[in-house]
């Protein structure tokens, strides 16, 4: 995979520090699955997190902190030996919507549910991804036919896009499989899917209101196209 567009350093730092909203985090983790170069960067940043942890001036714990921890550990061990472990119930997540050969459902979304492909315009479909425990996350898949385009738009929040399949050009650059893009209020663009193949992207928009407004504009325009 020839990946040319990667998340910026400050996004990886936010991911590693745990300060990203869930939806944005899932898109970055999806990129990580596809991109060995970024995995290497992130390994170094995680190590940096460990170094920062080591640097902390120790904060005094309660006098009985270790004793309490050992009590909890004992309770765990007793549970472990008393009960024959019942196999964890498999999580019931409906099958993701079908992807074309060559596109892989990201592991980062393993616990997420996704709707079937819904029609939003000629050659354009989308699927809503719901993230367990994070109802506020606005994550979705877009599946746009060859030669089709989304209407020109700008963003009221941060829009992260990860290409899973196919290619689009948005006037700024060409994005292909594995490529990542961040668009915000400073970006006006019109993603156009290249001829020859449809394009499937995972996207997340930060903030429900931004997402609804944005999606309404995109989709409203798409349906009227």
């Amino acid at each position: 995979m020839d990946i040319r567009h990667h998340p910026a350093d400050e996004q990886w730092l936010s991911l590693v520090a745990g300060s990203l909203p869930t939806g944005l985090r899932l898109v970055l983790e999806t990129h990580l699955e596809l991109c060995p170069a970024c995995r290497e960067q992130v390994a170094a940043l995680r190590a940096l997190g460990g170094v920062v942890l080591e640097e902390q001036a120790p904060a005094p714990m309660r006098d009985d902190a270790l004793a309490r921890a050992l009590d909890r550990v004992d309770a765990l061990e007793n549970d472990r030996s008393a009960a024959t472990p019942s196999p964890a119930a498999p999580r019931k997540v409906p099958a993701p919507p079908p992807l074309p050969d060559g596109a892989v459902w990201p592991r980062a979304l393993a616990d997420c549910a996704a709707t079937r492909w819904r029609w939003i315009g000629p050659g354009m479909r989308w699927s809503r991804v719901s993230v367990p425990g994070a109802p506020e996350a606005n994550v979705f898949l877009l599946r746009i036919g060859a030669g089709k385009y989304l209407p020109q738009h700008t963003h009221r929040g941060t829009e992260l896009t990860q290409v899973l399949y196919g290619r689009f050009h948005d006037g700024r650059a060409l994005f292909g499989p594995g490529d990542f893009d961040l668009a915000d209020g400073e970006v006006h663009h019109q993603p156009v899917v290249q001829d020859g193949s449809e394009c499937i992207c995972l996207a997340a928009v930060e903030g429900r209101l931004h997402f609804d407004g944005l999606i309404a504009r995109w989709f409203g325009a798409a349906v009227g196209m």
Binding site: V52, L53, Q56, P58, A59, M61, L66, A69
Partner: peptide, 13 residues
């Protein structure tokens, strides 16, 4: 525990 718990606590604070 004695090494890391106080540092985790410090980091979280």
């Amino acid at each position: 525990f004695s090494h890391f718990a106080p540092r985790v606590k410090s980091y979280l604070m």
